[in-house]
């Protein structure tokens, strides 16, 4: 079953996670790995996501007496999971419960990259936007209003040039605040059209009863509406993990699979 890979990985992360686990997400070609390398230096190792040929890198750094574990997720355009890479990224952010997720975006290509950022914010409020490659944006004569962006998104926005180590201290500080000083984040919520919104409303309450706050019920409702079988199976496995030793729910899984 697909979930074993995730579980195994989560257990491995849990072993020596330090004071907090931070996920690093981003589109391909955004300099995400540069951010990861600059933050962790040589304190890292790469490995295979169990059961899948997807690489992940784990690293760590120390800031203000806290040991931070950083998980570099595979590059993805979206979390709707059309490839193994995207599925791994989604599963970790959603079920791995990182203390915060940093989304690295390309300043020169904000619109495309915000697509992913908004999807992450839909799952978890603990999101930080790292706008990388601002030097490239300047070269292309683009001006970006970062504070306005932060206001619109409702999460911290940190401009960086990771390869020149510009802005990384700000990023560490922002992570510190979100994780340890419980900075309150109110991420912008994506509003869908009436049909979808009313459908969410119809099922969200029942979903809430089911997930007991262990997952974001609005997001789960959306995935159920979308009918994506991989995520529905993963959600079900997650619920089962919350409530182990439950035989009958296995039958429900079959129901889920039939629907997918």
């Amino acid at each position: 079953m697909q979930v074993t890979g995730l579980q195994e990985f989560l257990e491995r992360i849990e072993e020596n996670k330090g004071d907090a686990v931070i996920a690093l997400a981003g589109n391909p070609n955004t300099g995400k790995s540069t951010v990861f390398n600059s933050l962790t230096g040589l304190n890292q190792h790469t490995g295979n996501w169990p059961g899948k040929t997807v690489v992940f890198a784990k690293g760590s750094y120390r800031y203000k007496k806290k040991n931070i574990t950083l998980v570099d997720l595979p590059g993805a355009y979206s979390l709707l999971a059309n490839s193994a890479d995207e599925q791994v990224a989604r599963d970790f952010i959603c079920f791995g419960k990182p203390d915060a997720t940093v989304v690295v975006v390309d300043a020169t290509c904000l619109e495309r990259n915000l697509n992913l950022a908004l999807q992450v914010m839909e799952i978890t409020p603990q999101t930080i936007l790292c706008v990388n490659l601002i030097d490239e944006a300047k070269r292309k004569k683009m001006a970006i209003d970062f504070s306005k962006l932060a206001d619109l998104l409702g999460v911290p926005v940190i401009p960086t040039v990771a390869r020149d180590k510009v802005g990384l201290l700000d990023l560490k500080e922002s992570i510190h605040r979100v994780v340890f000083e419980k900075q309150l984040l109110q991420p912008r919520r994506i509003v869908y059209n009436k049909v979808i919104e009313s459908a969410i409303e119809k099922i969200q309450e029942e979903v809430e009863v089911l997930v007991h706050g262990s997952l974001n019920s609005r997001w789960v409702a959306l995935r159920l509406l979308d009918g994506d079988p991989t995520i529905i199976r993963e959600i079900f496995n997650h619920l089962q993990r919350m409530d182990p030793g439950d035989q009958q729910s296995k039958r429900a899984l079959k129901v889920v699979e039939d629907c997918g």
């Binding site: 619109e111 915000l114 697509n115 908004l118 683009m142 619109l152 979808i196 979308d226 009918g227």
Partner: peptide, 28 residues
């Protein structure tokens, strides 16, 4: 009812990404 829920979802997210980008980025 909706036809493609996925299309509506992706479209909404992209449209909002576009809207935000237009508000914060000025390109000479």
């Amino acid at each position: 009812q909706v036809g493609s829920v996925r299309e509506v979802i992706v479209k909404s997210i992209y449209e909002q990404a576009q809207e935000i980008t237009e508000k914060v980025v000025t390109t000479k």
